[in-house]
Computed example of a mutant assay.
Amino acid sequence: MQAKQKVVDEARRWLGTPYVHQASVLGAGADCLGLLRGVWRGVMGHEPEAVPVYSMDWSEPQGEERMWAAARRHLIEKSPEDMTLGDVLLFRMRDAAVAKHLGIVSTTDPLRFIHAYSGHGVVENTLSEPWRRRVVACFEFPLEDL
């Protein structure tokens, strides 16, 4: 099976998992970072670093792009225009706020993504224009070793 499809298949296993802040347990609870962490474990193995405790506002008061910096440490950054199956999308939910939401591209025609969304759990949605305009970065898993 193609490595990028493994990412999508693993993310789909999480569909229906309830939204729980800071959680990363398949079927029991996950937030968007917890989903990404779970997919990483399922595809890549052990997580590359411990995740510190984080608040719902992330680093907004400080204006620090902590999630973006962590993604750059462990994923391969690419242009959002080049997004493809299995890529990780980073979203800025409000103008001038820090980027603090993640999703995984699940299909490219039409563009859909899997994410953990407060009040909805882990879901698969169309990457509609309101979501697309919030994408600030795109990354791929370092899959060359798979």
Results as ranks from 00 to 15, higher is better:
1 M>Q: 08
5 Q>H: 07
6 K>M: 14
10 E>F: 06
11 A>M: 06
12 R>K: 14
16 G>K: 06
17 T>M: 02
17 T>R: 03
21 H>W: 15
21 H>G: 01
25 V>P: 04
32 C>G: 04
33 L>A: 09
34 G>Y: 02
35 L>Q: 01
39 V>T: 02
41 R>V: 01
41 R>A: 05
42 G>K: 02
44 M>E: 10
46 H>V: 02
46 H>A: 15
47 E>D: 06
59 S>G: 04
59 S>D: 12
63 G>Y: 09
64 E>F: 13
68 W>F: 12
68 W>S: 10
70 A>Y: 08
70 A>K: 10
71 A>I: 01
77 E>R: 07
78 K>E: 12
79 S>V: 05
80 P>V: 07
88 V>N: 02
91 F>C: 06
93 M>F: 07
96 A>L: 13
98 V>S: 05
102 L>G: 04
108 T>I: 14
108 T>G: 11
111 L>P: 09
115 H>S: 15
119 G>T: 02
123 V>Q: 14
124 E>P: 00
125 N>V: 08
126 T>G: 04
126 T>C: 03
126 T>W: 07
127 L>K: 06
131 W>P: 03
131 W>I: 04
132 R>T: 04
132 R>H: 01
133 R>C: 10
135 V>T: 13
136 V>F: 01
138 C>W: 05
145 D>W: 02
